[in-house]
């Protein structure tokens, strides 16, 4: 405290009065862009290479590494259609729930570890031999396979895909399109190979069932 009362107040007032006339430090943002550090990481932008194409390959490594899961992305396929590579759009919710589960520390069912039952590949190979490994006769192959196995096991579909060179998705799509082709054994509901147990396990893990959106 000073000897003269009020001198501190006067000093403060004089400081503010001097500041009144000094140049201002405000950056008038939209007109004057602030100088962002070269190393600044907060920039949300995709980089281009020398040829002018995007460097991002939508590989999702960054999204998987992001601890707070704030990164998500979509990409163009070869036909110029926009779609998201990391699983189908309808599984977004599941992925979100899964990451919530992972954060909560509870065990998360992983559909990647859902094994299909092994089958006798030789039977499939002989059928393929009969049809000359011709992808154009896919329906015939599938019907013959169903005749042999009584339904279309996942292993058989994978073998057909491998030998004929047709994508698994196309074979699965064909198999699931025709009503007379069964993907599950008789009595078991025909459904995607692993979705049902996964969803059931997920529902059990979250405690409450998911919203009935199906």
């Amino acid at each position: 405290m000073n000897l003269i009362p009020g001198i501190g107040l006067v000093r403060g007032m004089s400081l503010t009065l001097r500041r009144f006339f000094q140049p201002k430090v405000t950056i008038r943002y939209p007109e004057v862009p602030s100088d962002v550090a070269v190393k600044f990481r907060g920039r949300l932008q995709l980089l281009y290479d020398e040829n002018g194409s995007l460097k991002c390959e939508t590989c999702f490594q960054c999204a998987q590494a992001c601890p707070i899961e704030c990164i998500d992305m979509g990409g163009m396929d070869t036909k110029g259609r926009f779609h998201v590579h990391w699983g189908a759009a309808e599984t977004y919710g599941e992925r979100r729930e899964e990451s919530a589960l992972r954060r909560s520390g509870r065990p998360v069912p992983d559909p990647a570890y859902e094994r299909f039952t092994p089958i006798d590949i030789a039977a499939v190979d002989s059928i393929l031999e009969d049809f000359d490994h011709d992808p154009a006769q896919l329906l015939g192959i599938l019907e013959a396979t169903q005749a042999a196995f009584d339904y279309l096991p996942v292993g058989a579909l994978m073998r057909i895909s491998e030998r004929t060179g047709t994508g698994y998705a196309q074979i699965y799509g064909t198999a699931s399109f025709y009503d007379h082709l069964r993907l599950g054994a008789l009595g078991a509901p025909a459904s995607a190979p692993s979705a049902a147990p996964y969803l059931a396990a997920l529902a059990a893990a979250t405690g409450a069932g998911r919203q009935a959106d199906a």
């Binding site: 503010t16 009065l17 500041r19 009144f20 000094q22 201002k24 430090v25 405000t26 008038r28």
Partner: peptide
């Protein structure tokens, strides 16, 4: 405006 100037700000503009 005056308080902004004393704070080295620009204030309403």
């Amino acid at each position: 405006k005056i308080i902004a100037f004393m704070n080295l700000r620009v204030g309403p503009d």
